[in-house]
């Protein structure tokens, strides 16, 4: 039977920089020793988050921040443009533009480090940042759309009865999960393309927690 939590941790710790590799093995070995299902889930999620942060190449936070800003700005621009032109919701923007950005970010990270794992981790973190940015702008924009009787922000196909309904539409868990799932192939593709680089200097494969460096 597929062990989802072990798989998640395996993916999160894949291709960690050399100096972090033993810690990835430590996390995986520790998970293998845990039996209660709820504890396994809790440990795997925490371990994956630790690996995400620990295995980031230098400059990754800049890329992540750049994606968040671009998605936030793009969401606002797409929303206002659609409102002005009666072009319907901005679901198309949310599905396509972040995918392209995440592909590029994962490619750049993997290219610089020649590591698929580094590209994937940077892309995953950028995806979370993109989601938060989309929500940070999307929620107030959904209220604006409801106020102007322009429909739901995502699809624009019906006028929400209340502004709360408009906000709930943006915050639906299945909708958020679908966005992350939709962005995943592009992120993996970018990391894979970046890993094709075989020669040249590695920019910063030593990774390191940005926060740790700062301390």
């Amino acid at each position: 039977m597929l062990d989802m939590w072990q798989l998640l941790l395996d993916l999160a710790t894949a291709g960690l920089p050399e100096r972090r590799r033993a810690w990835g093995s430590a996390l995986r070995a520790e998970l293998a020793a845990i039996e209660p299902r709820a504890e396994r889930r809790r440990f795997a999620l925490g371990g994956a988050w630790a690996a995400l942060r620990s295995g980031l190449p230098g400059g990754a936070w800049m890329l992540v921040g750049g994606v968040a800003l671009a998605v936030a700005g793009g969401t606002f621009a797409a929303s206002r443009w659609s409102l002005a032109h009666g072009a319907g919701g901005i679901l198309g923007f949310w599905m396509t533009t972040p995918s392209v950005l995440l592909c590029v970010v994962a490619l750049v990270a993997a290219w610089r480090t020649r590591s698929f794992g580094s590209g994937l981790r940077t892309g995953a973190l950028a995806a979370l940042a993109a989601l938060l940015a989309a929500l940070a702008v999307g929620v107030p924009e959904a209220i604006v759309w409801a106020d102007r009787h322009a429909g739901y922000l995502s699809t624009g196909d019906a006028v929400p009865p209340t502004w709360e309904s408009a906000v709930r539409d943006v915050l639906r868990p299945e909708f958020l999960l679908a966005m992350l799932v939709f962005w995943t192939p592009a992120t993996a593709l970018g990391a894979g393309l970046g890993r094709l680089r075989r020669s040249g200097r590695v920019a910063d494969d030593q990774g390191g927690l940005e926060g740790h460096r700062a301390r």
Binding site: E30, E39, F43, L45, G46, G47, W49, A50, S54, H212
Partner: peptide, 26 residues
């Protein structure tokens, strides 16, 4: 001590305990 035991004793998540262990070890 094992990492999981530290998490349990302290009531902290692995995402908190392991970065601390990494930093302390380094």
């Amino acid at each position: 001590s094992h990492g999981y035991d530290l998490c349990r004793v302290l009531g902290l998540k692995a995402g908190t305990v392991y970065p601390i262990l990494i930093r302390l070890a380094e």
